[in-house]
Structure formats: structure tokens, C-alpha cells
């Protein structure tokens, strides 16, 4: 009676068919299966419930579950598509797909826009840019005089906001990134090219 080796086969609550996820992302089926190995590690590092909580995300990024960071918060928020406070496997794979070296540049540009559109107004506003610069200075312990910060924000804004209406829309953002491609450098993770080697799945 009931001598099952079910532990290995048991999937997490948000598990989705790798063939479906592979069809929707730049990953192959075996890469999705390898990502599942990574996902299992991340999602059981604090709470063993098969979902990535914000503390687990922070622990993976900073080796500290309590280390708060505006940009990590934004990434977690965007990965959490269902807005239920956790990242399930499907959300994890689809979001990481944007960071794949073969993902469309347009997707990377759009994702970066949403990261910076802190209040989700559909625009990056000057105050949001200023807030992000201040957050970075706080994070890095750099000290810049207020007038220098204002100059940097004003100058950046004037270059990106070609319509000169005080807010950067998606079209302006796209033009700005195409002129400054290094802005989306962190939207590509070379690690995703050899995910099979780093996290071999047991297929």
C-alpha cells in the first residue's frame, strides 16, 4: 500500500507545463526544467512552500533577507504578475525570459520602462527619476550636493523628454534607449544561456 516515491515528482503550486512556458519564452523545454531546479532552491530558502517570497528574493540577491532596495522591490513587483505577494514558477520563467540574451530588445525596453515608472502612470516623471537617484545614492553611500543631483536629473530629463512636457512616455523612452543602449545592459543575463549547465535537470 502506498509506497510512492512521490516527493521527487511533486510540483510546486504555480508549476506549469515546461512545453507551454518554452513556447512563450526564449527558453527550450530542458532550459525551463533547469530553471525549475533553480526555482526550487530559491523558493525553499526560507519558506518551503514552492513560491518565492520577497524575503527569499532579497536573500538570493543580497544574501540578506531584510536588505531592502528600491530597485529589487520594483523587480519583485514586476515579476509578481498576479500581484499576490509571491512569485510562482510560471511568473519566474516568463519574467526571466525578458532577460534572456535572445529576448526581443523591445521587450527589454518595455520592461525597463515599467521598472522606472514607479507610480505606474504610464510615464516616467521627473520626481520619480529624482527619487531613484536619491535611492541609489543612499544605497551606495555616495554623497552629492543637492544642486548637482538636480542638474543630473534635469539634464537627463531634458535629453529623454524630447516632447518637453515634463514626463517621459514609452516612445521617448524607446528613442532614448536606442541612442544609449547601455541603459538596458542589465536587462540581459548571460547566465541564462547556459542555465542547463548550472542547474542540470533530471530529464
Amino acid at each position: 500500500m502506498g509506497c510512492f516515491h512521490s516527493k521527487k515528482a511533486r510540483k510546486t503550486p504555480g508549476y506549469e507545463d515546461p512545453t507551454v512556458l518554452a513556447a512563450e519564452t526564449p527558453f527550450t523545454v530542458s532550459e525551463v526544467e533547469s530553471l525549475y531546479e533553480l526555482f526550487k532552491k530559491l523558493s525553499s530558502s526560507i519558506f518551503d512552500d514552492g513560491l518565492i517570497h520577497k524575503e527569499e528574493f532579497q536573500l538570493a540577491l543580497f544574501r540578506n533577507r531584510n536588505w531592502r532596495n528600491l530597485f529589487a522591490d520594483r523587480l519583485f513587483y514586476l515579476f509578481d504578475v498576479k500581484r499576490n505577494g509571491v512569485i510562482d514558477f510560471g511568473e519566474f520563467v516568463r519574467s526571466l525570459g525578458v532577460f534572456h540574451p535572445n529576448a526581443p530588445v523591445a521587450d527589454k525596453i518595455a520592461f525597463a520602462f515599467r521598472l522606472y515608472d514607479l507610480r505606474e502612470t504610464g510615464y516616467i516623471e521627473r520626481e520619480e527619476l529624482r527619487e531613484m537617484v536619491l535611492a541609489l545614492l543612499h544605497e551606495s553611500d555616495l554623497i552629492l550636493a543637492n544642486d548637482i543631483i538636480e542638474t543630473i536629473v534635469d539634464e537627463t530629463f531634458s535629453q529623454a523628454n524630447t516632447k518637453d512636457n515634463g514626463k517621459i512616455d514609452q516612445e521617448e523612452w524607446k528613442e532614448f534607449v536606442l541612442k544609449n543602449p547601455s541603459l538596458i545592459k542589465n536587462m540581459t543575463l548571460p547566465h541564462l544561456m547556459d542555465i542547463n549547465l548550472a542547474f542540470p535537470s533530471f530529464v
Binding site: 533553480l38 532552491k41 530559491l42 538570493a60 540577491l61 543580497f62 544574501r63 532596495n69 528600491l70 530597485f71 529589487a72 522591490d73 520594483r74 523587480l75 526571466l96 532577460f99 525597463a112 522606472y116 527619476l129 531613484m132 537617484v133 535611492a135 541609489l136 544605497e139 551606495s140 543630473i152 536629473v153 539634464e155 537627463t156 530629463f157 535629453q159 529623454a160 532614448f176 544609449n180 547601455s182 541603459l183 538596458i184 545592459k185 542589465n186 543575463l189 548571460p190 547566465h191 542555465i195 548550472a198
Partner: peptide
């Protein structure tokens, strides 16, 4: 030289560096 605030943020914030997901194992 033009100092790009977005570049400053994207290149310097550790919060943007998802490579740690693969390295801190």
C-alpha cells in the same frame, strides 16, 4: 560630459543585478 542618471542607476544599483540569483547558490 553628459551624466546620464538612468545609466548611473542601472549600472550601480545592486538591486538590478539579477545575476546574483545564479551566483549566490
Amino acid at each position: 560630459k553628459f551624466f546620464n542618471a538612468f545609466e548611473f542607476i542601472s549600472s550601480m544599483s545592486s538591486g538590478f543585478d539579477l545575476s546574483s540569483l545564479f551566483e549566490n547558490k
